[in-house]
Simulated assay, not measured.
Amino acid sequence: MPKLSVVIPCYFNEENIPVTARELVANEANFPPEVSFEYVFVNDGSGDNTLGALQQAQTTYPGKIRIVDLAANVGSYNAIVAGMAHATGDCLAVITADMQDPPELMVQMYDYWKKGFKLVIGNRQDREEKGPSRWFAQTFHWLMKRLALKNIPDGGFDFVFFDRIVSEEVVSLRERNSNVFYLMVWLGFPYVNIPYVRRKREIGTSRWTLSKKIKLLIDSLLAFSFFPVRAISVIGLLLGAIATVYGIYIIALKFMRPDEPEGWTALMVVVLFVSAFQMVALGIIGEYVWRGLDAARSRPLYVVKDVFEQK
């Protein structure tokens, strides 16, 4: 009798919880009768009454909901890892609390899992939301596909269904400053992807700020790609070649025109350009060094304040 654990990270989702819990439980009717369910809601240090809403949902649907209450906000990806660590199912799914991803797609995902696929991805073929968020998401996944993981599906994804083996591997890695969904693909298990259209958010306001998006882009690139460091090497070699040619030109000019005044403008352009490159290079190297230090300290990815469950 297979058991499905659905992990839902929550951050300022007080208004979403009643709708999310209702839709998830109602979706059980689409599954074969032998499947049992567990919903692991992870409260990621929310400052509103998300925990109270989760406890109310737990009372409404007894025996189905487990609440993992974290001591502080650690980010959605670490919250997902916390939920995976507390899930007990044979297979797991991760879905957002704002219901922008269709829970009914999990039925098709489950069918692929029964066929032997360890990882099933719901990739965003399109999205109803417009504006900067749409543009940033498209740019982010375009960059990741070309600079880091070439085998990820187009359009990006954060709606996944996977075997317990995948969950155990991700939890055991305890990787920091990374992207948990890309980490699942990086493990190398064959996967199947199901395209869908991401819904527009109807309840609440997204807390996914621009600074968090930029951090995710930097974390994902540095975690899965050597492109930034390789780019430093390539640009350094090009600048070295240009400097060599320019040095030969200056020496030749000195012999041919010994009384020619030095070119102040050209000199300053070269100095400023090289200095700017050096600062950027040091910044990129510093990002790698900081991540190495963060990993060496071995601090926990999250601290669980309490776990609420009903038998």
Rank of each mutant, 00 (worst) to 15 (best):
R257L: 08
V74N: 08
G156F: 05
W208E: 11
F162M: 11
I203G: 04
K213D: 11
D90V: 00
T20A: 13
R198H: 14
S178Q: 05
A241Y: 07
S76Q: 11
A82S: 08
G236K: 14
G240L: 00
A87R: 05
Y61V: 03
D101K: 05
W113C: 10
D90H: 09
G45I: 00
K212G: 12
M1S: 13
R124D: 07
G63T: 03
V180K: 03
L147M: 14
I250F: 12
R176D: 07
E14Q: 15
L24Y: 02
I250C: 11
I8R: 00
F273V: 13
R207Q: 12
R198V: 15
A79M: 04
E128R: 09
T88V: 04
N30R: 11
M256A: 14
S225G: 03
K114L: 13
I65Q: 00
R230V: 14
V7R: 02
V289E: 14
E260Y: 15
A281K: 00
G63R: 00
Q108V: 03
T209E: 14
R291V: 02
G263Q: 10
E262Q: 13
K213H: 04
E202H: 10
D90A: 04
P33K: 01
I218K: 15
I80Q: 03
L216M: 15
P32T: 09
